[in-house]
Design a protein around this nucleic acid. Structure first.
Length: 516
RNA sequence: GGCGGGGUAGCUCAGCUGGUUAGAGCACGGGAAUCAUAAUCCCGGUGUCGGGGGUUCGAGUCCCUCCCCCGCUACCA
């Protein structure tokens, strides 16, 4: 690992296959990665956050035909929907990659050539059941037994056994090296349950992998053999390298950000990232990424999201209905990252009203409003701190560090939020116990001290919450008159960092209750 | 079938290498307060810890067995 790589952070989402519009699952992954990236940036780390679209393949080719469009036109339209999503979700990606882009073709071909050079690729035959109607090989689990030992495809047509020349990657020879790699790198696949699955799978022994197709047109041409197009994963996975200027491995960006810190992916594509990808990379003489983190799926009202059930939720609609930061908060608070979870109107409404409106929003509003009315709209002075005050402040001391650990060890976003909320709860207790409203007329110094500590608490908590709810937190920090360059995690080292006498604007509520 | 994970309060779950009356949040009930977005704070649980058997001074926590749920078991992304 180079020195450049030490204080840098590279996180990626999976690239989305653009055969349709984004759904809640895409949003979920993008938001989680966005929180990671923002968190690292606020910690002062040089961060590169990548997302994008996967555009090649027969599905898109066919969908394009069906709509009378070229694959280029079709994928551009859909890719734009995904890029648009990064905007309305306030995703802070540094780059949006498209696999149909020229730079990606160059990178993929370079990787292919490297594998050829290292004798990892050979030509042989790919054989399987082929559907003429669908113009594609059919997976075993999709094949239906027809009459007289015939095989039928998903469209009900008769399948043919077909052979065609194909290039293969020598995956089999990597079996033991992969097992060793997993053993030496316990953090490579997370959560642990996925790691076990992968190891279990690899232990069975690996077959070589078909990595080209002849009858496919929409894709990256195999170098020196124009009849072939690269098949799926070699193309798709390479996007992580393209974005940091591969094949120029002496490039500053590449040296700085490779190996990637986190590839965050859905549990459905674990194998490709945890088996094929490190094998490809090691074959090319490159380091594998540090961690493949697999998140779960979101159910809707308890049932799987699916087109046939008609319950596919559009992130855009959800943002319009509930608010962006509300949605972001809900997704990361409600379900432990890595496990499956559920989305329902009742659940998100409860989170919005209980956590955001009542606990956090109301805390901020009651404190700021009290200051506005009783301290001439200025950050109050603080005087003597008693034992209770110290005890209260101490609750915040270790918050940032324990959150660091929770996030970067296992992406425990929900536990980070639980920790932060425990402090919000302490603040609500503190204000009730201290009851500054009773001190208005007889002990102004004490009242100001209490309010000062509370204002500092809100600043602290809001700085911590920025990665999760960037816009709302920005508004609250505005209300505390915190300068833009005083909003990083650096500020958390000094709890009493607000400057007494600072003029404050009139506060307004940031998290309204949700009512139907 | 094989491998792995799980079955704890109405709901979602926490309970590390076995040890005082089994916990949290939400929901529900009562009270206090009135600075605040009718928000907040305090108090309130008779749960066969999936069933049965065993080890132990002592088991949700270990062993055996049975029942149920989920994931993985190769080329759609």
């Amino acid at each position: 690992m180079s020195n450049d790589n030490m204080n840098s952070f590279f996180v990626t989402t999976a690239i989305s296959y653009v055969n349709g519009k984004p759904h809640l699952g895409h949003a979920y992954e993008a938001i989680a990665c966005d929180v990671l990236a923002r968190y690292k940036r606020l910690s002062g780390v040089n961060t590169f956050f990548l997302t994008g679209t996967d555009e090649h393949g027969e599905k898109n080719e066919r969908s394009a035909n069906k709509e009378g469009l070229s694959p280029q036109e079709f994928t551009k339209i859909n890719s734009d929907h995904f890029e648009d999503m990064t905007n309305y979700l306030n995703i802070s990606n540094d780059y949006f990659i498209r696999t149909s882009s020229e730079s990606h073709h160059i990178a993929s071909k370079a990787l292919w050539n490297k594998l050829v050079e290292n004798n990892e690729i050979y030509i042989d035959k790919y054989e399987g059941w082929y559907s003429i109607v669908d113009e594609t090989f059919i997976n075993e689990d999709e094949i239906i037994d027809g009459p007289n030992k015939t095989k039928l495809g998903p469209s009900g047509d008769k399948l043919e056994w077909l052979e065609e020349p194909s290039y293969f990657f020598k995956l089999s020879k990597w079996t033991n090296k992969l097992l060793e790699f997993y053993k030496e790198n316990p953090d490579f696949i997370k959560p642990k349950s996925r790691r076990n699955e992968v190891i279990n799978f690899v232990k069975q022994g690996l077959n070589d992998l078909s990595i080209s197709r002849q009858r496919l047109k929409w894709g990256i041409k195999v170098p020196n053999d124009n009849k072939h197009v690269m098949y799926v994963w070699l193309d798709a996975l390479t996007n992580y390298l393209t974005a940091i200027n591969y094949p120029d491995i002496s490039d500053k960006k590449f040296k700085c950000f490779w190996p990637a810190d986190f590839h965050v992916i859905g549990k459905d594509i674990v194998r490709f990232h945890a088996v094929y990808w490190p094998a490809f990379l090691m074959s090319a003489g490159l380091e594998p990424p540090k961690t493949i983190f697999c998140h779960g799926f979101l159910n809707i009202n308890g049932s799987k999201m699916s087109k046939s059930l008609g319950n596919v939720l559009s992130p855009k609609d959800l943002v319009e209905k509930y608010g962006l930061d509300q949605l972001r908060y809900f997704l990361l608070r409600e379900v432990p990252f890595g496990q499956d979870g559920n989305f329902s109107h009742t659940q998100i409404t409860q989170r919005i009203n209980n956590d955001l409106a009542n606990d956090y929003g109301n805390l901020s509003q009651r404190v700021l409003s009290f200051i506005n009315k009783n301290c001439s709209s200025q950050i109050p002075e603080y005087f003597e701190l008693n034992e209770l005050d110290q005890k209260y402040i101490n609750k915040f001391k270790s918050l940032n560090k324990s959150c660091d650990k929770l996030i970067f060890d296992n992406l425990e976003f929900h536990n980070v939020l639980i920790e932060i909320w425990s402090c919000i709860s302490s603040a609500n207790q503190y204000i009730d116990e201290q009851a500054p409203w009773k001190l208005k007329n007889n002990n102004n110094k004490r009242m100001e001290t209490i309010l000062y500590l509370l204002a500092c608490s809100i600043k602290y908590l809001t700085i911590m919450l920025q990665p999760f709810m960037p816009s709302s937190c920005s508004l609250i920090l505005d209300q505390l008159a915190v300068e833009n360059n005083n909003r990083s995690f650096n500020e958390l080292n000094n709890f009493l960092s607000l400057k007494p006498g600072t003029q404050l604007p009139k506060p307004t509520g940031i998290f309204p209750r949700f009512t139907d």
